[in-house]
Design a protein around this nucleic acid. Structure first.
Length: 565
DNA sequence: GCCGTTTTCGGCCCGACTGTTTTCAGTCG
């Protein structure tokens, strides 16, 4: 067995399975086969343990959508780093077709046409061919398609990846406020992955109730943030706004609003499962409502006005958007066994915030007043220790000054309480960045890794677990250190971190900073089931960032998904 | 290729939009 094969991670294997799916489709085999490989890839991305371990324990078949063929492929990849099926497909499908598939608007059929005639295998060649108008000489391709391909390539080059949730939310809110003001529509909602609190956002989806979409689309397309209109039909309009972000607007009759919201919120997988379930009861579910099969044309819905009525008509409990991922929530809703999710309104305080004394923007007094105005009972200020030079960490003298400042605020704001804490750096060797007598001055000690991310999994795990065992440490902050779309999580054994949390009573943070959302949602359920205490924090560096608590809570709610592997 | 409160074989969600078309294929979500 090659050494590096041992290191094959779940994501890498999922990627190969996805590619097998694409290749199957390009080759023209049964598309359901392709769909299965992609579904298996998705299950694997949701997995909370390494595939290598499941292979050893011969438990691969427990994974949804993994049967004999897929598990054979997985076993081969784990053992040899390669899959026979994958290699056979690569040999059968001309190289480059996969590349063409990456261009939005180019699917298997178009890719095949372009390759067969022009032998194009790279995006650059495709761009050149489009500019030379060689594409429009091909069957089924004319000037319009050629133009669209050029635009897609331009967008592809400009595209920086998925948007962070706060950026997408800002763009979505700006648009909904504009639409409300300009069009006077009464019913309007943000749907899609934004409503599900997914950690990063592809497109923004907005649903509006109205009888005539025309005037609404006029206003939509004229919005100040719109760069160009992608598509516009009778009920649906898509635009690109700043930074390449896409917004889809869907207008439906008021009586279909609930069904449309359900449909547009997704996830796709949740919808597919729901529709399949409806079908087995001789019911049809679409974005307009729930119908008896054959009755949809007569406009006689069984349910459609609200999401609640649709779920009820399917004899299941209402499923919160954060759980709609087809990870077992539908069965749980049928059995009236959905978990009760934490609510934002239950949050009593915030235990991870920064001020202008270190790398934050606002003074403690302003942070505290905003926290109190939000209805919190307490706010912990956890400015940095000095180890991170760039954050201007607190010296012993400044710690005393901070304690005095907090005492003054507590006298003023009682019964609201300012808690003085610290976000203390865990140094590379595992030592904490303050001596014990200083740590003892704080009521909350949150330990964090901010350096030497490249340590081995064993080193990093020992470093973190060691800090958690320190008697003065209250919590572990952002456990994986990941920065979404920017930095991978560092190698750390979260199973051992959870063990340490249970053993020592150290809390594990769910960090609401939109670029962190760390602990990742796939670990939430596992941590809580094993008895660890999770704490939702905003990690605010400015007063308005206290609102990021919402993201921490949303992440925790998503993580509460039933089932899973 | 997977899967089973109608099935171990025969299904596998459903509709909108575009472009190239005179009725539909391709793509997307």
């Amino acid at each position: 067995m090659p050494l590096d094969a041992l290191a094959v991670g779940n994501d890498a294997i999922a990627k190969v399975l996805d590619e097998i799916g694409d290749l199957i489709e390009l080759k023209g085999e049964n598309v359901f086969r392709a769909v299965t490989y992609r579904a298996a890839a998705r299950s694997i991305r949701d997995l909370r343990e390494p595939l290598t371990k499941l292979v050893e324990e011969r438990r691969l078949k427990e994974i949804p959508k993994v049967g004999s063929s897929v598990s054979e492929a997985i076993e081969q990849i784990v053992a040899t780093g390669r899959s026979k099926r994958h290699e056979e497909l690569q040999a059968a499908v001309p190289p480059g077709l996969l590349t063409l598939l990456r261009v939005p608007g180019v699917g298997p059929a178009t890719a095949r046409t372009i390759y067969d005639h022009l032998k194009i295998t790279t995006i650059e060649e495709l761009e050149e061919a489009a500019k030379d108008h060689r594409l429009q000489q091909l069957p089924k391709i004319q000037a319009k398609t050629e133009e669209n391909i050029l635009r897609s390539i331009a967008a592809l080059k400009q595209r920086t990846g998925r948007s962070l949730i706060h950026e997408a939310r800002a763009a979505a809110t700006r648009m909904t406020e504009y639409l409300r003001a300009e069009s006077g529509v009464a019913q309007l909602a943000i749907a899609g992955s934004l409503r599900r609190y997914k950690e990063t956002i592809g497109d923004i989806d907005i649903v509006v109730a109205g009888d005539d979409a025309g005037p609404i689309f006029e206003i939509f397309a004229r919005a100040p943030s719109v760069e160009r209109v992608l598509a516009r039909g009778d009920t649906k309009c898509s635009v690109i706004v700043d930074r390449g972000l896409q917004i889809d607007l869907r207008v439906v009759p008021a009586r279909s609003f609930g069904a449309a919201l359900l449909y547009f919120t997704g996830s796709k997988e949740h919808n597919v499962r729901l529709r399949g379930l409806a079908l087995r009861r001789k019911l049809l579910l679409n974005e307009y409502g729930l119908y008896r099969v054959g009755a949809e044309a007569r406009g006689q819905e069984i349910a459609s006005l609200t999401e609640e009525t649709v779920y009820a008509a399917l004899e299941m409990d209402f499923i919160p958007p954060e759980l709609r991922e087809d990870r077992g929530e539908i069965d749980a809703a049928k059995a009236h066994a959905l978990p009760k999710l934490v609510e934002l309104a239950q949050v009593r305080g915030d235990l991870h915030t920064h001020t202008n004394w270190t790398d934050g923007r606002d003074p403690l007094a302003e942070m505290a007043r905003r926290a109190r105005a939000k209805g919190y009972a307490y706010l912990a200020v956890t400015d940095h220790s000095p180890g991170l030079g760039m954050t201007n960490g607190l010296s012993p003298e400044r710690i005393e000054a901070r304690l005095a400042e907090a005492a003054g605020l507590n006298a003023e704001l009682a019964p609201f309480r300012v808690i003085v804490g610290t976000e203390v750096d865990i140094r590379a060797n595992g030592a904490l960045d303050y001596p014990d007598q200083l740590l003892a001055r704080f009521d909350v000690v949150s330990a964090s890794v901010h350096s030497s991310f490249a340590q081995t999994r064993d080193q990093m795990t020992a470093r973190v677990v060691g800090a958690m065992r320190h008697p003065l440490v209250t919590a572990l902050s952002h456990p994986t250190g990941r920065l979404l779309e920017k930095r991978e999580p560092h190698a750390v054994d979260l199973d051992k971190v959870i063990d340490a949390a249970v053993e020592t009573g150290t809390w594990i943070e769910v960090n609401g900073g939109p670029e962190r959302l760390d602990l990742p949602d796939t670990w939430i359920r596992k941590a809580v089931d094993r008895g660890a205490t999770l704490v939702a924090n905003s990690d605010a560096h400015a007063i308005e960032e206290l609102e990021w608590m919402d993201l921490a809570v949303g992440t925790a709610r998503r993580g509460w998904a039933p089932g899973g592997a």
